[in-house]
């Protein structure tokens, strides 16, 4: 049986791992390769690298980093952050990434999703959605959560799947950083209304939260950063717990 996936996320700035809360007080947290190897050895099912470098020039170091990651780890990984064109993606996939993730650029130019899936296949196109609940509905936000749109999240999710998204990375801004659990309601709503895998993100604080996002939220994968970085939750212990809770997991 296909298993549910546990995915640590690493924020990358100028080729280094950084840790911070809500993109503030960012501190250098070392070499991404070392952390990636550690997560991989602990049993992470995949990794996500999110490049938060400010300038395009600094992003050039990204493909070199992707190359080093691919040389050193033997599990799949996704690279996101600042991808605007089909050509940006060629470089990243050709350096050894398995999937790429797009967000704001895809919202502003939806045909990018179509172009990417035609050129590289839907399986490597992850579309990330930052969503916030307000006025009784979930809406799409852009630019790392700074720009609100009028688009309802459920509508955008259906559109991107029609355009060729192979997977959706759904981050709830209401939950992100709170450690109070994932947004199971919107996760479930998206998961039941589109036919591609959903990676839930934002809000992980305890092992029970992971259980709930799989059972209640119907997520296919769960992503988290700080609980893993700060070793509040250890991946092998989490996976044993989920297995004991009868959730299908790779031990």
């Amino acid at each position: 049986m296909l298993t549910k996936r546990i995915i640590p996320c690493l924020d990358i700035k100028d080729g280094r791992t950084v840790k911070g809360v809500n993109f503030e007080n960012i501190k250098d947290a070392g070499d991404p390769i070392e952390l990636a190897i550690e997560y991989s050895n602990q049993g992470a099912d995949e990794l996500v690298f999110l490049d938060i470098s400010a300038t395009n020039e600094k992003r050039k170091t990204l493909s070199e980093l992707v190359n080093r990651i691919a040389k050193n780890i033997n599990i799949p990984f996704t690279v996101g952050g600042g991808i605007n064109s089909v050509d940006d993606v060629y470089e990243i996939l050709n350096s050894g990434a398995d999937k790429i993730s797009v967000n704001t650029s895809a919202f502003k130019n939806p045909s990018l999703i179509n172009d990417l899936s035609k050129r590289y296949g839907t399986q490597c196109v992850v579309v990330a959605i930052d969503t916030k609940f307000e006025n009784n509905d979930w809406y799409v936000y852009l630019n790392g959560g700074r720009v609100k749109t009028d688009k309802k999240t459920i509508e955008w999710a259906k559109e991107i799947v029609d355009l060729g998204a192979g997977e959706i990375l759904l981050t709830s801004m209401n939950n992100d950083g709170t450690k109070s659990g994932f947004a199971n309601d919107i996760t479930r709503m998206i998961s039941e209304n589109v036919n591609v895998p959903i990676i839930a993100s934002g809000g992980a604080g305890t092992m029970e939260h992971f259980r709930d996002v799989f059972t209640v939220g119907k997520a296919d994968a769960a992503l988290a950063a700080s609980v893993f970085h700060y070793k509040e939750i250890e991946i092998p212990i989490l996976k044993k717990y989920l297995n004991a809770q009868k959730i299908n997991i790779r031990l």
Partner: peptide, 10 residues
Amino acid sequence: NKVPQIGWNN
């Protein structure tokens, strides 16, 4: 089932 199948299987 969701398509594509993505992940670890036996």
